[in-house]
Structure formats: structure tokens, C-alpha cells
């Protein structure tokens, strides 16, 4: 039982970044991200040029740049501490970014500066990974089928769009942050930042199409505070 629990924690840590040590104590900020306005339609992705990827999807795949749910919730919003936790311990575990069925899994990957990043190709075809970095050094490299993972890391905080030129519909993000405290909203728009020592924080929500919002939250001890964000959506 304990072993199983540990592995679940490790898995969560792998996906969301912060090391297990951080959630032992401290305060929590949780909340929900919603939108006002009209979001763009989720559009079907036409993968017909790559039959090996078409075969991996039973139902048509749609775009992930503006995924919304019931109650105007917004998926794939990165909520993180943008000020107030300077000096927090850095995460050292490896962030995995997979190419599967000609999609990026996860669509948005959050990592810390210098945190190890592994890019994997699970497809029976060749991809090229092209992070369109502006602050960091841009790179562009093919990963043939069966090729070993590409191990890398980023030097500067940046929101980096990732694309595959071989499959132009493939689109994702590397979100490189200074903080170990971050969370990605789920399909209900919910997020949770845990293990925060007492202090005054700026919490920022970032979405690739709906923009950025910040608010200040003060944590006194082992309490849970709520911070909700309402982003503005436009149809085009």
C-alpha cells in the first residue's frame, strides 16, 4: 500500500513538477478558471497525410488550443506563483513530453528552469520537435521512429510554442517557470497549488489564447485559500 502510494505521488510529481517534499506542509491555493465571451470552435484535425496516426484515433481529434467545459471552465490553463516564493527548492525529476498519434501528450508541459526534459516519440513515424523559443535558444530536430529520447532543459523562463513541421497540426507548449509551484487546470477548470509557506504571493493564470491574469494571495499558515480567474475569450 505504501509502495503504491509512493508511486502515485511520484507520477503526480512527474506530471506537475513540484517534488514530493513540498506538499508535506504549508498552505494551499486552489480555484477555478472560467471564461467570458465566445471561445473559438474546437475544430477537427485532418491527419490524412499520416495514415499511421489516423489509425491510432477511433474518433476524430480536435484542436486543443481552446478546450472549454461545462460552466465555461477552461482546460490547459497554467496557474503558478509568479512572485513571492523566490528561493524555493528546484525540481530535479524529469518532465516527459510524448508524441503519440501525432499529438503532444501533455498538450502543455510545465517545467522549471534547468529541469530535465525528455521528449519521446511513440509513433511509427518520424517527427521533428521545433520549440519556437525566443528568449531561450531555438532548436529543431527530427526524432525518427524508435529513436532514443531527446534529453534537454531550458535556461530561461519562457512560454514556448512547440510544433512539428512534418505534421503541421501538432501544436503544444513548453511552459518554463522559475517557480516549483504550478498547476494545470483539468477539464473542470480546477487547479491547486500546495505546500506554500506563509507569505504573500502573486498567482498568475496563463492560457495560450485567452491571455494572462494575476492576483495577490496571502497565506498565513496551513490554510487553503481560493483564487478564481475569469479570462476573456474571442471567437477568432
Amino acid at each position: 500500500m505504501i509502495a503504491r502510494f509512493t508511486s502515485v505521488v511520484a507520477l503526480v510529481a512527474m506530471v506537475s513538477g513540484p517534488a514530493p517534499g513540498h506538499r508535506a506542509a504549508g498552505g494551499t491555493i486552489s480555484g477555478k478558471v472560467t471564461y467570458t465571451g465566445t471561445p473559438p470552435k474546437a475544430r477537427p484535425i485532418d491527419m490524412s497525410k499520416e495514415p499511421s496516426c489516423v489509425a491510432q484515433h477511433a474518433t476524430p481529434v480536435t484542436t486543443q488550443d481552446a478546450v472549454t467545459g461545462a460552466g465555461n471552465s477552461v482546460d490547459y490553463v497554467v496557474v503558478y506563483i509568479s512572485a513571492g516564493d523566490e528561493g524555493a527548492a528546484a525540481a530535479t525529476d524529469t518532465v516527459r513530453y510524448e508524441q503519440k498519434g501525432c499529438q503532444y501528450i501533455p498538450h502543455v508541459a510545465v517545467m522549471q528552469v534547468h529541469q530535465p526534459l525528455a521528449v519521446l516519440n511513440d509513433d511509427p513515424t518520424s517527427h521533428n520537435i521545433h520549440p519556437l523559443a525566443k528568449v531561450n535558444a531555438e532548436w529543431n530536430k527530427s526524432q525518427p521512429k524508435g529513436a532514443p529520447p531527446i534529453h534537454t532543459a531550458w535556461d530561461q523562463p519562457e512560454f514556448i510554442a512547440v510544433k512539428c513541421n512534418v505534421h503541421p497540426w501538432m501544436h503544444g507548449y513548453f511552459v518554463v517557470l522559475k517557480t516549483p509551484h504550478s498547476s494545470i487546470t483539468d477539464s473542470t477548470g480546477a487547479f491547486k497549488l500546495e505546500g506554500l509557506p506563509a507569505g504573500k504571493y502573486t498567482v498568475t493564470a496563463w492560457h495560450e489564447r485567452f491571455g494572462t491574469q494575476s492576483q495577490e494571495v496571502t497565506i498565513a499558515g496551513s490554510e487553503t485559500k481560493t483564487a478564481n480567474f475569469v479570462l476573456t475569450a474571442r471567437p477568432y
Binding site: 484535425i45 490524412s48 510544433k163 497540426w169 471567437p235
Partner: peptide
């Protein structure tokens, strides 16, 4: 490509663009 706007259409102001059909076959 990220927005799947491969042809660079401007549906906000160009009404003729909104019903264009864009496919990969």
C-alpha cells in the same frame, strides 16, 4: 498552424472567408 489557420484567413473582418472549406486531402 497552431490555430489551424493554414491559409491566413481573417474571419473577423472578411465574411467571404468564414465558409471557405480547408482540408488536407
Amino acid at each position: 498552424d497552431a490555430d489551424q489557420n493554414f491559409f491566413g484567413l481573417d474571419p473577423a473582418t472578411d465574411t467571404t472567408a468564414r465558409d471557405d472549406i480547408v482540408v488536407a486531402t
